[in-house]
Design a binder for these strands. Structure first.
Lengths: 332, 332
DNA sequence: TTGAAAGCGCTAACAC
DNA sequence: GTGTTAGCGCTTTCAA
């Protein structure tokens, strides 16, 4: 029995010694090596989903969306965690090169350093939620970060807040920069001052949000409202508020970016900017599968998803308005 | 310039035409194929971490623990999601075979079906948090599920609860079975009846926990305390309690298994059974690295981690006790 | 139908 | 130091 016959048998072709081969396979516990197959064929049926933080529920949702789509097309997903580190990302991308048919990437930074890695892989790439500076060559599925931050700011402004603090993400990431800009723009447009002490740059992590919130609360006077530019920092900030003993929304209004499973169950429930998370993952996968399906030479596509404001209980009018309102009532 | 010289150059050996080769590499954007390297050497420097649900924060923490250890040893982690499905697990394990040096696996079921896949891969395997029935051949890092559930039950019993409901995970998983057994044992020992309507088997998912909680609340009489056997089901159950309008802990005490980032910030804060999560991931990785480091023939090791009860605000004496206490007070 | 041969991209042993 | 050769495990012509 020759190797090529076994190969054909495995492929489902009609073979004379089918029974014999099957028996030999069982006895020897023979498993064709996917590795060798891939080397020969150049096909892996694997897609890497490279994200900066697997413990961020946003990316967990994204995975769900992507997986639902990829499964139907016969691709399996390898999730890879860069931990927001450019070096790790560089290493991992190198390790993946050739091992996967395509990559969905949420890069650790917008700085275009990674672009060399990307061209090196040969595999099609789709940017997810984050892109590289000046990107025109790769597909991407983004969200209107500036618009979302603007929604949050305008909501707080409409409630009467004048002292609004920002817990920003890293400025060298697409969502960090976008949300920062949108927020600052909205305040400028409303002619609300934003002193430096009201802008705290953190790292999209819980601990960073915690410390940023403490710094905001230490400002003199402290803000009457805070917007945290992602969900993890929001959790950290809420922990800080609880530690210091600031009541929400009575003493301070709070808005997060990206919903949380428990956002509704918190007391007060959490006002957030939300977006179609699973859909974002699904769309990125569709773009990638499209390239893998032969449309390699289509011009790069850029999809921008809309955000929406989900108003819950953590936002209200600032205390000075409430106080003056009750004073007025008392006066009456 | 011959291929082997390039190979040597890449390997860091002294080569005469170093400069020329470097230039050629740059010009041609040459990247050695990790795939071919692995085929040749049998080494990938990759470890697969196969989990049933990447959106479960428990596994996210585990990843952190594993990653911290693997990184120092020069291995990269590929996270793989089986979505609690045996078929997906089967497919994925097959796809991974040969592509990774080792596997850390939290199997979708205890039923020993997967074991054939495992022997097929050739790669060392460590079971994480879940194992296969009758496993004696593979390392594993488990947690004392029965003991943890017992802690929860005894806590509720000590508070005076007599009608205690259980939201159990799938009985064919290690933690599902262990927590179920520990809970039932503790109640039996305390001679507390556990009618079938007080035991709801769900799927370790939020939606399952939601529905299980609704069924428990529909029992006649409803339980005065509920234990949910994992974090996601706990979230679902809390949502059900909020929907129905049951006050915690005044009307119903609640205990979860596995901590949550926001458990402390809920009102009331959530009483849970907790465990050293990152450590569990780190230990599994250490066992695996040990095998990869040459100790292939050591007997299978079995590590069991302890749980602890973190008492917070969601548990209190049952309403009938409180009522009779206040009645007594009123009588005085 | 089937086996022999070539080759995917790389590395290690061998001779030069 | 360097190139040649062989081979990792598979698939795919090409003859037979």
């Amino acid at each position: 029995v020759s190797a090529s016959s076994v190969s054909r048998f495995l492929r489902g072709e009609r073979v004379r010694n089918a029974a014999v081969i099957q028996q030999a396979i069982d006895e020897l516990r023979f498993r064709p090596s996917p590795l060798a197959r891939s080397l020969k064929s150049g096909i892996t049926h694997l897609i890497a989903l490279v994200v900066p933080d697997v413990s961020n529920p946003f990316f967990a949702e994204v995975v769900k969306g992507s997986e639902a789509v990829s499964r139907r097309a016969g691709y399996n997903i390898l999730l890879v965690n860069t931990d927001e580190s450019v070096e790790r990302e560089h290493e991992l991308l190198a390790a993946l090169s050739g091992r996967v048919d395509g990559i969905i990437l949420a890069p650790a930074t917008e700085r275009a350093e990674a672009v060399a890695d990307l061209r090196g892989t040969g595999a099609p790439i789709v940017f997810l939620d984050r892109e590289l500076h000046g990107n025109e060559d790769f597909d991407c599925v983004l969200v209107d970060n500036a618009g979302g931050a603007r929604l949050a700011a305008e909501h707080l402004i409409a409630l009467g807040h004048k002292r609004i603090g920002l817990i920003s993400g890293p400025i060298d990431t697409t969502p960090g920069r976008g949300r920062h800009e949108g927020f600052v723009d909205a305040l400028e447009q409303a002619e609300i001052e934003l002193p430096p002490s009201y802008v705290q740059i953190a790292d999209f992590r819980e601990q960073g949000g915690y410390q940023a919130a403490l710094r905001l609360l230490a400002a003199e006077p402290p803000p009457s409202a805070i917007f945290a530019a992602n969900n993890l920092m929001a959790i950290g900030a809420l922990r800080a508020l609880a530690t210091v003993g600031v009541a929400t929304p009575d003493e301070l209004s709070f808005v997060g970016f990206d919903d949380l499973k428990l956002a509704e169950l918190l007391k007060p429930s959490l006002t957030v900017v939300s977006r179609p998370t699973e859909e974002q993952g699904a769309l990125a996968m569709r773009l990638l599968l499209d390239r893998l399906g032969g449309n390699e030479d289509v011009a790069a596509r850029r999809i921008m998803l809309e955000t929406q404001l989900t108003v819950r209980g953590s936002t209200a009018a600032p205390p000075e308005l409430l106080r003056s309102a009750s004073t007025r009532t008392a006066a009456v």
